[in-house]
Design a protein around this nucleic acid. Structure first.
Length: 865
RNA sequence: GCCCGGAUGGUGGAAUCGGCAGACACAGCGGACUUAAAAUCCGCAGACCAUAACAGGUCGUGGGGGUUCAAGUCCCCCUCCGGGCACCA
């Protein structure tokens, strides 16, 4: 208010008052999510049983619906909103379809951001993390998500991470957890080692500007490679997973069948073992190529300073390329060592080179170079003028003798290959590997790109590794040797008082109370392991814990897990395709082999939703295009926000966020609210089922028809392809039809039983998408119980059927007119109706009818000339 | 280079099995209501040609070919965009 009000004329005052009075009346009928949503949220929060699954003795069929658990950053982003809106709609639908639904949520609560926050704000990581969890849980409740909070899992609590330690000990017993020194990835920003899966194009997965370095360190590894074949073969059966994810995992595992062949080094006792997938080409080998780190190359270097410096250059080239994330692009470069290797198949001497295109960590770090039959070898040989020797020719055509390299192995045979000349490549591969084995210089083998999972992290905020190093040693343990803690010593608690700094080394190493301990076997002094576990350990099995989250004596009860597993539907982003999703498949198999569960795979179906985009780019802080879910909820309500997230695109596609669209959904919900409230007095709950629906007039029949068509469509979409955007469009169409019939409902032309049926079912169908509004309207309509436990409506095919059909009529494939015929008309009737249509016959005048195609119920096409 | 997606009005998208392209929304335009505005309600809306208007006609789903009575949809070739993999021997 300001002084200008004093000038207002008396008449305007009256107008203003009248308007205010009218607006007050309208306000009472206005959809107000800011009032409805907190009211229902409070009621739902107060009723812990509302979303609780029934036990594993339930008579209902089970449905385990799961969204990937978030990292508790403190703020939900739109990607979360979309992910959870999808899962929530499905969970609510399945409840309404009569399933026993498990729909849990938890927190992937260990990890580096908590340490960074600790540095920045001087807040302990635990405090920061738990506060964030509280805030995000509140956001989820505000969204109206149907999680059973009694099963909540928080991975940074000892009640959870003690089982990480327990699994680690079990794996150690079985040789699945082991320590070794090796070349590992080091992120200077994170100040820790990373697993191979966490390095993307030579950069840290968390810091895309930070080049990952290679360091030689002693680290703990989990032997995922023991399951490499099983993980690979399992993919073939997983038809509920996107082909894209399966392909990515196949590539990542990178199985390759081949042979190991020993080449003797001349004038030396050493040998070089090469790995090849094409042993059939071995008579074409004209050199042996070594990675710069190869021991034989290093031995040569020791005695030859010039060679050593050349090898160093090659090593530097590889390092630079690796850090640039573009190993494939560097120009081939090599150096002749001046030494020779002996091809065991023909006794020929070939030069030994060191080359920058040979990787130390794949195969044996050594190859036989066959330039005539390998593109890379060909390129290298061309550059250095090395000789070519052709040993493979196609069976059918001989005219491409000049075209080298010749790569085919199908329908090709060997030439100039001693006793194998004339054999097919496929046969020769087998026989030659066999021959090498019999003569003691080789064997057939399988190599994988997949490496064991390095799980040691030089960080504080993670699960302590339950191992100590006995200082003095004793029987079976040398001084400093590894001693696993007994189960009774678990959990090894993460100390609370730890100084977080940016200096290197594991922060736990600076906590004397923690480090200094006693050996559980000999009682002598011992040092604890100070590295913590990769946080992907936490998320590898969390979904089993949901089935028995309070269990204090085991990770979970097998009977419960076996009831709920496998997960029926897992929903999350595709960015975890080869991280979490391969680790958890591995962990599932380990638990199976421990006898804890029976399933081989964690999830029957996986759904990867698209990204949330704004202004043409993925929403991100760095792009400055982030839209806050809180802001949307404040402006339009949670129902409108989540419903927009489902409406704007099918869930598997990227979604373009447009706030005007949210406003549109909000307007739609207002319309639903106004209409339902307006007719609420006429709506009764169904004690008298509307039996003789046929007795109603045409307007009522049309409205009921639209209702049942809508039920059929939405039910179909839910069971199949999940195009929730078209589900919501169908509800909008239904509401538009209701609006068009508003006058008929006012006048009584459409009577109360019909109005009841239409509105009741409309509200039920809204429940998976707009749960707050559906709950409110259900109550306003006198519905008993939670709307999410009412049986999903069933479409009546009879009522859904159209009485008349509009049949498009084409002449020569072009639409001319649309004729109306009674539903179920036979072909002759439709044809007659089409041909007697004025516009159609005008188009046919003077022409000869060649053919009339009638697709009953669809269309007529008259072909004339 | 290889493997997956994708390209439809001004915008997001629909067309689920080869059968009316553009459902449903957003933005826009016109109207009603209002002193006015907001909100709400009603209507128009692919492009082009033509017309006083009505009627009418042509083109149209990234481009080019093909199959078919009929193609956004199937086949062949190509372009562009997004994602994944890549000296893996």
């Amino acid at each position: 208010m300001n002084g200008q009000c004093g000038k207002t004329a008396a008449g305007n005052h009256e107008n203003t008052e009248r308007n205010a009075a009218r607006e007050a009346v309208e306000d009472a009928q206005r959809y107000n999510p800011a009032e409805i949503e907190p009211k229902w949220q409070a009621r739902w929060d107060a009723d812990a049983s509302l979303y609780a699954a029934e036990g594993h003795d339930s008579a209902k069929p089970k449905f385990y619906c799961l969204e990937m658990l978030p990292y508790p950053s403190g703020q939900l982003h739109m990607g979360h909103v979309r992910n959870y809106a999808i899962g929530d709609a499905l969970a609510r639908f399945m409840w309404m379809r009569g399933y026993n639904v498990l729909h849990p949520m938890g927190w992937d609560a260990f990890g580096l951001p908590a340490e960074n926050a600790a540095l920045k704000n001087n807040t302990p990581p635990a405090e920061w993390t738990l506060a964030n969890i509280g805030a995000m849980r509140q956001q989820m409740r505000r969204m109206g998500l149907s999680y059973d909070w009694a099963t909540e899992v928080t991975t940074c609590l000892p009640e959870y991470y003690r089982w990480n330690q327990w699994f680690f000990l079990k794996m150690f017993e079985r040789g699945l957890a082991y320590r070794k020194k090796s070349n590992v990835n080091w992120c200077p920003e994170c100040q820790t080692v990373l697993a191979n899966e966490q390095v993307v194009d030579g950069r840290c997965w968390r810091h895309e500007d930070t080049i990952v370095e290679q360091r030689d360190l002693t680290q703990w590894f989990l032997r995922i490679t023991r399951y490499a074949d099983e993980l690979l073969n399992g993919l073939d059966k997983m038809d509920g997973w996107p082909e894209k994810v399966r392909t990515m995992q196949r590539n990542w595992i990178g199985r390759s069948e081949g042979a190991l062949i020993d080449f003797a080094v001349s004038d030396s006792a050493e040998k070089i073992t090469v790995f090849t997938t094409r042993v059939d080409t071995i008579f074409g080998a004209t050199s042996v190529q070594l990675a710069p780190e190869h021991p034989v190359a290093q031995n040569f270097a020791v005695k030859d300073a010039v060679l050593a410096s050349q090898i160093d250059i090659i090593l530097a080239q590889q390092k630079a390329a690796r850090e640039a994330g573009d190993l494939g692009a560097i120009e081939k470069h090599g150096v002749d060592t001046g030494k020779f290797a002996v091809n065991p198949f023909n006794g020929k001497f070939v030069p030994i080179w060191v080359a920058n295109y040979i990787l130390a960590d794949y195969g044996t770090g050594a190859i036989m170079s066959v330039p005539a039959h390998d593109e890379r070898d060909f390129e290298f040989a061309a550059k250095y003028g090395l000789s070519l020797r052709r040993v493979i020719v196609p069976n059918q055509v001989a005219n491409d003798l000049q075209q080298l390299p010749y790569l085919a192995e199908d329908d090709s045979s060997l030439v100039d290959s001693g006793q194998w000349t004339g054999q097919s490549c496929v046969d020769a591969q087998q026989k030659m590997a066999q021959y090498a084995k019999e003569n003691g210089f080789g064997t057939s083998t399988v190599t994988y790109r997949l490496k064991d999972w390095g799980v040691s992290r030089q960080r504080y905020w993670g699960t302590p590794i339950p191992m100590v190093y006995c200082a003095n040693g004793h029987t079976g343990i040398e001084p400093g040797g590894v001693v696993p803690l007994p189960e009774s010593a678990l959990p090894v608690l993460l100390p609370a008082q730890v100084e977080i700094t940016q200096q290197g080394g594991s922060p736990l190493g600076r906590v004397a109370d923690f480090v200094n301990t006693t050996c559980p076997i000999c009682g002598g002094p011992a040092l604890r392991e100070t590295d913590t576990m990769d946080t992907f350990v936490d998320s590898s099995w969390y979904f089993y814990r949901y089935t028995d989250a309070q269990n204090a004596s085991a990770p979970f009860d097998s009977a419960k897990a076996n009831y709920w597993f496998p997960i029926d539907q897992y929903i999350g982003g595709v960015e975890h395709a080869i991280l979490h999703l391969i680790y958890s498949r591995f962990w599932t198999r380990v638990m199976r082999d421990l006898g804890m569960i029976q399933n081989d795979e964690p999830a029957t179906r996986l759904f990867t939703q698209g990204m949330v985009i704004k202004d043409g780019a993925k929403m991100s802080k760095s792009k400055g295009n982030v839209v806050s879910p809180d802001l949307m909820i404040e402006r339009y309500g949670a129902d409108a926000t989540r419903m927009y997230a489902l409406f704007a695109a099918p869930p598997d596609r990227d979604l373009d966020w447009q706030e005007d669209g949210v406003a549109g959904i909000s307007r739609f919900l207002s319309r639903v609210y106004r209409l339902t409230m307006k007719f609420s007095q006429q709506i009764s709950q169904p004690d008298s089922q509307s039996a003789s629906i046929i007795a109603y007039g045409p307007a009522a029949q049309a409205l009921l028809r639209k209702l049942h068509q809508t039920i059929a469509k939405i039910t179909l979409d839910f069971s199949g392809r999940w195009h929730f955007n078209t589900c919501i469009a169908a509800i909008m169409e239904l509401v538009n039809t209701i609006v068009a019939n508003e006058a008929a409902m006012d006048s009584g032309e459409i009577s109360s039983p019909v109005i009841s049926e239409v509105f009741r079912n409309m509200v039920l169908m809204l429940a998976p998408f707009a749960p707050f509004l559906a709950a409110e309207l259900w109550e306003q309509l006198g519905g008993q119980g939670a709307v999410f436990r009412i049986a999903w409506p069933v479409a009546d095919a009879e009522l859904a059927r159209e009485a008349e059909l509009e049949i498009p009529v084409q002449v020569n494939g072009k639409l001319v007119n649309v004729v109306t015929v009674p539903a179920g008309s036979d072909e002759a009737t439709i044809r007659a109706a089409a041909q007697s249509d004025a516009k159609v016959s005008a188009r046919m005048a003077g022409k000869t009818v060649l053919k009339v195609i009638v697709v009953p119920g669809k269309l007529v096409n008259i072909v004339v000339k």
